[in-house]
Amino acid sequence: MSVAATTGSPGSALERTGGGGSGLSDVVETVLDKGVVIDAQVSVAVVGIQLLEINARVVVASIETYLRFADTVDRMDIVPKDQKTLPDLVDGVAGAAAKGRAVSGLGKAAQEISGAVADSIRGGDDGERRRRRSRER
């Protein structure tokens, strides 16, 4: 079972994030505009409900983006990249941590992931990661 917002072996270059346990931006990005559409015109039974506006971020290159990139260049030290100074390294680490924090607003919820659906055939309380559904159908 996937637990916790962000994990990964110490030193690993890969961060692991369980489904549904990630920050809101991940959730929005993962689920928005996905899934089977049951068209209201096909099924009269579809009810129009009030959906809060959820916008995925659309990336469009713009002058603002260009100027921001140039601004970064302006702020970068002219030090060959294989000779990073210690403050550079520390700065980089702090930046990464701040980014991580900004997108993980749902830490509490993420602690509580549990199997939402279990197998009606075999109960499935063994905590095993494998699927528990019987294959005889």
């Binding site: 079972m1 996937s2 369980g18 489904g19 549904g20 346990g21 809101l24 959730v27 993962t30 689920v31 749902l106 919820a109 992931i113 549990s114 199997g115 939402a116 659906v117 279990a118 197998d119 499935g124 990661r129 699927r131 528990r132 559904r133």
Partner: peptide, 13 residues
């Protein structure tokens, strides 16, 4: 989040 957790939890089994 509830929607995604339900679906992801289901997908595991």
């Amino acid at each position: 989040t509830a929607y995604e957790r339900l679906l992801d939890g289901t997908a595991e089994v």
